[in-house]
């Protein structure tokens, strides 16, 4: 299948498509933590680098199959997701954001000093096993599982934590368990995306997984709409393609990129598809009419 696709699609566009696929996996992970459950995490690049380095080191030093390597990377990230999930029980909002930023920095500095990870020089020569079909398959599975989760009882409980934690608790939602779960799942997807990224890029260094990377992924989720799967996918596609298309305006491309974000956020503060959700689309309409009567 991959041979056929490389013949049909220009390598440059194929590259962008694969990056979009990897970013969708990453952003859907963050969407679970920040978008759905409302736990502001600004350290997604930390989970991504854990997955990337674990996968890279394993595939450089062992002959394990690629799938095992990817899952090992994702599991390593998920483990740290649980560790970070525990303080989230006591913290919320800005305070939690600071903890997650701190975590991502710890991971980055750790890899800066980690002998096996090549220190600041980074790791080169990672076998390139990420192909279009693997990314596409994993992406479809991740999207499918995300939709199933959010439509399930657990998914609604996750949304309820975001809307009002005390009310959710009063309704019998086990918020402790679910918050740790959402961090673990978000980190798992972050690690999975990181593993795919490492194997696709051939070279990784700690500098790539800095604070800006976390913000970039958060941008995708916020732009598309917090908690919305189609929104997140749309946000990823726009923010991955835009910098490439903006190469036309050369020196001003970062300016255009910023302007686009500002315009979008002014007119769509909930993100492109943040307030369009299938499960409450019907309930929204009568609500608005009620408001009009009151005013």
């Amino acid at each position: 299948m991959d041979a056929f696709i490389t013949q049909q699609i220009d390598a440059y566009y194929l590259r962008i498509i694969i990056i979009i696929g990897i970013n969708i996996i990453l952003a859907l992970g963050l969407n679970l933590t920040t978008g759905v459950t409302g736990q502001l995490s600004m350290g997604h690049a930390g989970f991504m680098s854990l997955g990337a380095y674990t996968a890279a080191i394993l595939s450089l030093h062992t002959t394990l199959p690629f799938v095992v390597v990817l899952i090992a990377g994702a599991m390593a990230a998920a483990l740290f997701g649980i560790i970070i999930g525990i303080p989230s029980l006591r913290l919320e909002g800005d305070y939690l954001a600071i903890v997650t930023i701190g975590f991502a920095e710890i991971v980055r500095v750790f890899f800066l000093n980690f002998e096996l990870g090549g220190k600041a020089v980074g790791l080169a020569g990672i076998p390139q096993q990420t192909t279009f079909s693997i990314v596409f398959l994993i992406m479809m599975v991740v999207i499918f599982l995300n939709i199933t989760l959010l439509n399930s009882h657990t998914g609604k409980a996750l949304y309820s934590i975001r809307e009002n934690e005390i009310a959710a608790q009063a309704c019998g939602v086990n918020t402790t368990q679910l918050k740790i779960l959402c961090f673990a799942m978000g980190a798992f997807l972050g690690g999975l995306g990181g593993g795919l990224y490492a194997s696709y890029m051939y070279y990784i260094s700690p500098g790539e997984f800095g604070f800006m990377k976390s913000i970039e992924i958060l941008n995708m989720v916020v732009l598309g709409g917090m908690g919305s799967i189609p929104g997140t996918i749309l946000g990823v596609i726009i923010l991955t393609i835009a910098p490439e298309f903006l190469r036309v305006v050369a020196d001003y491309r970062l300016l255009f990129y910023g302007a686009m974000l500002v315009i979008l956020m002014i007119f769509r503060p909930n993100g492109l598809m943040g307030d369009i959700r299938w499960y409450d689309i019907k309930k929204r309409l009568p609500k608005k009419e009620v408001k009009k009567c009151q005013s």
């Binding site: 220009d10 440059y12 990056i19 260094s205 790539e208």
Partner: peptide, 21 residues
Amino acid sequence: YEDNKGESADIANIATKYITV
């Protein structure tokens, strides 16, 4: 002349663009 911002994801995109486009 494309700007790769010193980032490996960008240089990979640019190199591919140079070669194929």
